[in-house]
Design a protein around this nucleic acid. Structure first.
Ligand SMILES: [Zn+2]
Ligand SMILES: [Zn+2]
Ligand SMILES: [Zn+2]
Ligand SMILES: [Zn+2]
Lengths: 164, 164
DNA sequence: GCCGAACTGTTATGAGATAACATCACAGAG
DNA sequence: CTCTGTGATGTTATCTCATAACAGTTCGGC
């Protein structure tokens, strides 16, 4: 996923158990809300959780079938739309990728720190909601949703670059 | 460009003279800096300035030739890359569109307020660099560039909605 | 004039996303 | 229990967005 250096000093993708737990929790929560957590939706969420980092839609499509059979694009895009609507996943527009939400809870404003070197991302809770809302109010805009994505280098890649 | 209502209560695209003036200023500035403001780059900037709102790349491609002849995609994408690098234009990732910079000056962090109804956008000068940089620093990230895009309704569309 | 770097032209293709329509599952009404 | 409407899926095709690759050109510096 990186372009300059391609370290994969992952904090490690989550363990299978951790994925199961998150998946079950999401399933329980949304089912309780009267939503239908269908197999396709669960599968896409499972793939996102297991990746632990942003994933391209067509990678999800390729990995969808347990047996290696790809899904049809609309299957995955529909699931992503649902997950995003429910706050379980986010689209990262600047890299056209999708990531499981690490904050849980219902739909919310999110901001991302993205390493251009290794692809690692960190979701941070809207650090600029205040400033942005103020700017929007001054301009007379009503804001519904925000895209906040900061690109740069994660700590590991920064250290690796300094060492060189 | 809107999807719900498609008002085009433009603040009016800039007058031809205003476009010429901006274009000449950009030309003079970059030429003074030793950059090559070639016909293709000037033409794309002219189209962006004349639009006065975000434009899709393939719309630029279609409008490129004075006589209605479209350009080849790389021609326009290369010009856009140059203009963005020089701070004369911005890519708005959440809508895959490009817009002339309204702040002038060299490359800079920008933030946008985007009306989902009519497509109007306002570029606001990052009052957010502070908050975001702080969050990034806390997480150990070095930030190089940011994407900040707020979606909602412009004043005109909000008023129109309230009247209904 | 020669050279290298930057820019352009052109062809082709890769990557991302959605339209359209038929079909299916399911909960609530009658 | 069956009808019925809404939401979810399956499937095909297509559309939009963006770039790879390579040949040819321009232009300033030597
Ligand atoms: Zn989140
Ligand atoms: Zn990194
Ligand atoms: Zn700007
Ligand atoms: Zn509007």
């Amino acid at each position: 996923m990186g372009d300059a250096c391609h370290h994969h000093h992952d904090d490690g993708p989550p363990s299978a158990e951790a994925v199961s737990v998150s998946l079950a929790a999401a399933d329980a929560r949304l089912t309780a809300e009267g939503e239908r957590m269908t197999p396709a939706r669960l599968r896409v969420l499972e793939l996102l959780l297991a990746a632990g980092e942003p994933v391209k839609a067509y990678d999800l499509i390729a990995r969808f079938g347990e047996d290696g059979q790809p899904a049809k694009p609309p299957t995955v895009y529909r699931a992503l739309e649902f997950l995003e609507r429910k706050g379980l996943a986010h689209r990262i527009a600047s890299i056209s990728a999708y990531v499981a939400c690490t904050e849980g809870g219902p739909a919310h404003a999110a901001a991302f720190l993205i390493c251009d070197c290794c692809g690692a991302t960190a979701e941070v809770t809207a650090p600029l909601a205040g400033a942005l809302d103020r700017a929007a109010h001054d301009a007379g805009y009503d804001i519904v949703r925000t895209t906040v994505e900061a690109h740069g280098r994660c700590p590991a890649c920064r250290d690796a670059a300094e060492a060189a």
